[in-house]
Structure formats: C-alpha cells, structure tokens
Amino acid sequence: MTETCTTSELMAVTLARGLRNEEWGACGANSQIPMAAFQLARLMHAPDLNWLSGGGGAINSAAPLVKSTADPVTLDSAEHSFRLEDIVDFELGGWRKAPTVGIFGGMQVDRHGNVNMVGIGRDYPKLRVRGPGTVGLVFAAYFTRTMIFVQRHDARIFVDEVDHVSAPGRTAARREFCDPHSDGPQLVVTPLAVLDFGDDDTLRLKSVHPGHTPDEVRERTGFDLPSSTPGEVPLTPSPTDEELTMLRERVDPGGALRRLRLD
C-alpha cells in the first residue's frame, strides 16, 4: 500500500473482506462503514452479494455514503426497495435462498458478543442512561452470521456482561432457541483492533490496527482479551492498492469515510 488509509477506511476494508459472495447482508442506521464494506465487497470478490441499506429498504444501492442509511437518495441507485414488512419477513428467515449476514453496533458489547441498546443499568426500567431501544438487533437471532462494528473502543462499550441482551451473542440461549444454522457473531471491528471468538465462544484479540498496541486495546476493554494466535499480536492487514483505489474512486469519492469521526 503506497498511501496511508484512515481508520474508518481500514475498518470498511476489514469488514468487506469478511463478506462472502452470494450472501445477503444488512446494516442498520448510521452505518457508513458497513455501507462502504458492502459496496466494496461487491466490486472486489463478491459481485453476487446482495445487501439492504437500513430501514429505507434500498437493495444493492450504489448511493454515496450518506450518514442516514434510510435516506430516500439510497433508492436512486438501488435495484429494488423493501417495505419494512418485507424487511421483517425476510430478516426473520422467510423467503431465504442464501445465507444472511448482519452488520451492527450497540451501546455495550460483552465477551460473548451480546449487544445492548436498551440502556445502561440493570435496574430496569430505572436505567442510568436510557438508550434508544432494541430496533432490529433481534434479527441477530435469525441471521446466519453477524459482524459487530463500533466507532468507539473503551471499557464502557466492551463490558464483561451486557446489562440487557438486545442481540444475542454466542450463548446457551442461542443454542437452545435459535436455528442451528444461525451462528451468531464472527468478528468485531473497532477503531483500535479486530476481535474474533475462541472455541469457548468468548472474544479474543485477532489483530491491532497500525499505530495501536495490544496493551492499549486490553486497557480499553472491560474483560480479559487473550490473543487469537500464539506469539506477537499481528497488525490488521492494510488495504491493497486495488482495494484503496476502488474504495476511494468508486465507493467513496466524496470522502465521507475520511471525514468520519471515531473515538
């Protein structure tokens, strides 16, 4: 790679590499990084990946990376539009012809990959911080697999156990109630690092982004984070020249990712 990329670009490329051809993917609101990942994957290795841009219902949109994924402009370059009824039917498992993958974030993520958007505090309904609500996180119980992304990495987000389970991670409840083909979260991509899961279904440190150290990541995570591989924790692979060119010239010529604020 000849040019340096920003952290948000690295996150988009990392998620894009995690997407597979012929999958069906979806992201939620405020999701410029996942939106870029879907578009980039289609241009690179996954031309038959289909994807849904948030609640606006745009399928396979080539829209600019708008901040609001439900913006009507996403339909201008889409192949089809889903109504919310279509989205719910489909994301609960109806009509499926291919594996599905959801990319989402939340207010808290725990070591099992459970995600919380209800709020902070166990004493419900007297929450210390009332969150926005569970929205579509329930679909994590129905997607074939999911990837988690967060735009901030600290011990307030990465907690030992979430206060409320909005999206189930790799848990006993998943094994009891979900379809055996619904595998839960596979990867967590943050502004500092990439995390994956060990055989015990808890998070591990897979790689750190250039400019960051494993100690820093562990300090800013609220639970123990063993390494995925023996020896030194590797650096997150940088985008190739082709990926970065495709990302900057085709997916994000407006530079939305380069302007995105991450903490």
Partner: peptide, 14 residues
C-alpha cells in the same frame, strides 16, 4: 406468532 429465536434475546423479559 414469531419464528423461534426471539427467546434468545432479553427483550421479552422487559
């Protein structure tokens, strides 16, 4: 009715 899976979330208990 919903397809099974919703039970794996905590939303029902809220």
């Amino acid at each position: 009715p919903l397809p099974r899976g919703h039970e794996a979330t905590g939303t029902r208990s809220l």
